[in-house]
Amino acid sequence: MTWWPWEQSSQTTMIIDPQQISPAERLLWNYGITKPTQIDLDAIANDNGAEVKYRPLGGCEARLVARGDNAIISVSSNSNDGRQRFSLAHELAHWICDRKTGSFLCAKEDIGPQNSEAKSVEAHANGYASQLILPTYLVDPWLQGRKITLEVAALLHKEFNASLTAAAIKLVKRATGPVCLACHSQSKLAWHQRSRSFPFEFYVLSELHHDTDAFGMAFGGGSGMTRPKTEPANRWVSGREAYRLDVTTQSVRLPDSTVLTMISLGR
């Protein structure tokens, strides 16, 4: 992405080359969106011919019914705000990107991605949805001068009305330093996300070390966010000479009882 400097005057000017940003960001930019609070996904759906209904859905998080140039997107009213927003963004991605090709269509009772092509379409919709909620052209300037911590992720989550997990993943993806986000259940590593500079020779341990705060959270049920803590790297990662290094970690327990930890590699 090419960035022009922000000009400081009585107001702030944002200059962006629409050809250099992702399709989802371009959509937002073409709606004149220059602040996160202006991202109104319901309105964007409406302007693209899709009605949005929040209603109980027993078998899925969201549903898109399309006919010609019109669609109805249903979002489960039982889900939390962050999940509802991502589900709407995901279905909106299908509606905007895939309706010409029909590749999102699954008109049978089997309602999950059943083959590699369908999985690829789903992955693309997830990426598009992520940019609709946390567009890089707004996130990067917001991040300037801030550290990559869970506290900052919590601020990002509030500012952009995204889930905490989505905000933390975005932070790590945009980080220039070696950081990694890990999500553990009591028994295993559920998933992890590395920054581009996190060393490939290091692997996040599959089980929580008993001396970590995250272990206490996973098994003791503690809530809230821990304070950043410096500890031996080999409590978190394996790899050549990991035992010589320190990491700074911060953890938070998620509503599904997993524990999310930001791991920043020290020197």
Binding site: G59, C60, E61, A62, R63, L64, V65, A66, R67, S87, H90, E91, H94, R99, G102, F104, L105, C106, A107, I111, G112
Partner: peptide
């Protein structure tokens, strides 16, 4: 007609 589900 088209139909898609998320997390279904």
């Amino acid at each position: 007609l088209g139909l898609a589900f998320r997390g279904g």
